[in-house]
Amino acid sequence: MSELLKVDNINVYYGSIHAIRNVSFHVDEGEIVTLIGANGAGKSTTLNCIAGLLKSDTGDIVFNGESLSKIPGFKIVNKGLSLVPEGRRIFLQMTVEENLQMGAFSNPENEQAGLERVFDLFPRLKERRSQVAGTLSGGEQQMLAMGRALMSKPKLMMLDEPSMGLSPILVDQIFEIIKNLNDTGTTILLVEQNAAAALDIADRAYVMETSRIVMEGKASELKESNQIQKAYLGQ
């Protein structure tokens, strides 16, 4: 499989805090890769840096053979990479449909087909298309955030804590949808605190601890490792 995303030695600082140190990893086309680790380990910072919300002082991020480090943040979605951010960050005062239209901002030709696909995946959103997003339930908001990210027809979709704050049934649903998206050709980079669920659907995993990647491997193997079981799976 060919390499879709290569993160090479990035460092991000918030003022004097060194948020991620020398982070390097890669995601191959068609994979589900998960980044697991405790709160504050630097997982979200890593995703935000790839998506262009933060800039690294060093190294490079190469997506689909093209370096992203010189590209302004708002143009990155154009390259086929979209992020479902932590806390969803949907536009609460806009309607469901408007949120989805914003998702297709960089790719307006895809708006109609994108809407159909998203409404197909999330029938609830279709029912509520003209409702203001702030009135949706937490689960529906997560679906909207994912649907919005799909509107740009990404090659790689990054999800930051999609299960946060959701009921167990909804978590299962969300993970099922992620698996589905992957089966239909979208590469996935998933950040999760719910390590067990993430390792279940992932092909490979990286473990972050105190702003570094400390371990990597096949998801199935990591799941069996004593160290991981103790630290992240509570067994």
Partner: peptide, 14 residues
């Protein structure tokens, strides 16, 4: 309207 609500999320949309 998107920018006025959340600049970062708006940039993510392109």
């Amino acid at each position: 309207r998107a920018v006025s609500e959340d600049k970062g999320a708006a940039e993510l949309m392109g």
